[in-house]
Amino acid sequence: MSIDFPYIGTALWKLLPALPTTLYITFVSVACGLIIGTIVAFARIYKVPVLSQLGTAYVTIVRGTPMLTHLLLIYFGLSMILDSLSVKYGWSFNSVSIPMIGFAYISFSITAGAYLAEVVRSGLLAVDKGQLEAAHAVGMTTFQGLRRIVFPQAFAAALPNLSNSLIGMLHGSTLAFTVSVVDINAKAQIIATTNWKFSEAYLAAALLFWGLTILIERGASFLEKRINVYNRGGVA
Rank of each mutant, 00 (worst) to 15 (best):
S2N: 14
I3A: 13
F5Y: 15
I8C: 06
G9D: 06
W13S: 04
L16V: 15
P17A: 13
A18D: 04
A18C: 01
L19Y: 02
P20M: 10
T22C: 02
I25D: 14
V28R: 04
G33C: 11
L34K: 03
I35F: 14
I35E: 03
I35K: 14
I36V: 14
G37D: 04
T38H: 13
I39A: 15
F42S: 05
A43T: 13
I45E: 07
I45K: 09
Y46N: 13
K47P: 02
V48H: 11
V48S: 10
P49E: 11
L51N: 03
L54A: 15
G55I: 10
G55N: 05
A57T: 10
A57R: 13
Y58E: 08
Y58G: 08
T60G: 09
V62W: 02
G64E: 14
T65H: 07
P66C: 13
T69W: 07
H70E: 11
H70G: 14
L71V: 07
L71T: 04
L73G: 03
L73C: 06
Y75S: 06
Y75A: 05
Y75W: 10
S79P: 09
M80Q: 06
M80N: 12
L82S: 07
V87A: 13
Y89D: 00
W91H: 09
F93N: 02
N94L: 07
S95H: 15
S95N: 08
V96L: 08
A104V: 12
S107N: 13
S107H: 01
S109R: 04
T111L: 08
L116M: 12
L116S: 05
A117L: 03
E118D: 12
R121S: 12
S122T: 09
G123A: 11
L124P: 00
L124M: 14
L125S: 15
A126V: 10
K129Q: 14
K129M: 11
K129G: 09
Q131A: 01
L132K: 07
A134I: 14
A134N: 02
A134T: 04
A135V: 00
H136S: 13
H136Y: 13
T142H: 07
F143M: 08
G145S: 00
G145A: 09
V150F: 11
A154Q: 07
A156V: 11
A156H: 04
L159P: 06
L159M: 09
N161I: 09
S163C: 11
N164V: 03
S165T: 08
G172F: 01
S173R: 05
S173N: 15
A176W: 00
A176F: 11
F177D: 05
T178Q: 14
D183T: 04
A188H: 01
Q189Y: 12
A192G: 02
T194C: 09
N195M: 08
N195G: 02
W196D: 08
W196A: 14
K197H: 15
S199C: 01
E200V: 05
A201N: 08
Y202L: 08
Y202S: 04
A204P: 05
A206D: 12
L208A: 13
F209T: 02
L215P: 06
L215K: 03
G219N: 00
G219I: 05
S221I: 01
F222H: 13
I227C: 07
N228F: 03
V229L: 00
Y230V: 15
A236F: 00
